[in-house]
């Protein structure tokens, strides 16, 4: 079974080294391939990866999180990977959950598995403002699709081959996490959540700051609504 870990990274030199070390320590049998997508970082993100001996794709233009992640899925599709795991480059995601994340996929219970902070409510729970936003998105997706996704913005996810193919041909652009759940549901595929514990980011900066969060909420809401009325064939 070929498994690829996709790590989108934009200016994450402070966090990436630790993350890669953690993954390697976790994966001592070396079953996992790691691929960092460097989205035109201005710091030494690419160098850190090379120093750690990890494969890195340096994008020639800044594509944003959606475009960067999709590059990973395109790579996974090209190289015939069976499972792709998305891990944020900021170190919020603990590699120790990888096994739990891919288990339902290997057993064929689900096509996609999301790691959620809000099932057991342990570890870093994000700020209250963000929790409100996530809560709202949870209800929006729930009313529109009936899916119960407690952590729709979580970027800690694993996908099977079918979804790798789907994402490599079409993936939402700017803030893709909630929208991609709609997309998968529309395609008749299944999403499952498992509880994980996340960390607070140590260094660097989040891509969503306070004044961008209003834009984020409006854009994501509209994206979800538009996806609802989209036909299945798109």
């Amino acid at each position: 079974m070929k498994i690829l870990i996709i790590i989108p990274a934009f200016n994450e030199e402070e966090n990436l080294g630790d993350l890669i070390k953690k993954i390697k320590k976790y994966d001592n049998e070396n079953n996992l391939d790691i691929l960092v997508i460097n989205d035109q970082s201005t710091d030494e993100t690419s160098l850190v990866c090379k120093r750690e001996g990890v494969n890195v794709i340096d994008l020639p233009c800044n594509l944003g999180i959606g475009g960067a992640v999709q590059t990973g899925y395109k790579f996974a599709a090209m190289h015939n990977y069976d499972i792709a795991i998305q891990v944020d480059g900021d170190g919020q995601h603990n590699p120790e959950y990888i096994e739990k994340l891919i288990e339902p996929i290997i057993q064929g219970h689900s096509t996609m598995v999301i790691g959620s902070r809000y099932i057991e409510h342990l570890g870093f729970q994000s700020s209250s403002v963000r929790r409100m936003g996530i809560w709202y998105l949870k209800y929006l997706i729930n009313t529109l699709t009936g899916l119960k996704i407690t952590d729709p913005t979580s970027g800690y996810r694993a996908c099977n081959k079918e979804i790798i193919q789907l994402f490599s041909s079409n993936y939402p652009k700017d803030y893709p996490e909630p929208e991609s759940i709609m997309y998968i549901k529309r395609k008749g595929l299944t999403v499952l959540e498992i509880p994980v514990i996340m960390n607070e980011r140590i260094g660097g900066e989040s891509s969503i700051n306070l004044h961008r969060s209003i834009y984020y909420m409006i854009k994501v809401s509209l994206a979800i609504l538009f996806d609802k009325i989209r036909k299945e064939s798109f």
Partner: peptide, 18 residues
Amino acid sequence: KIKNISQELGILRYEFES
């Protein structure tokens, strides 16, 4: 189109280097 080309170019560059 630019997005697709950038992704393709990034992957190709990586494959070429290896």
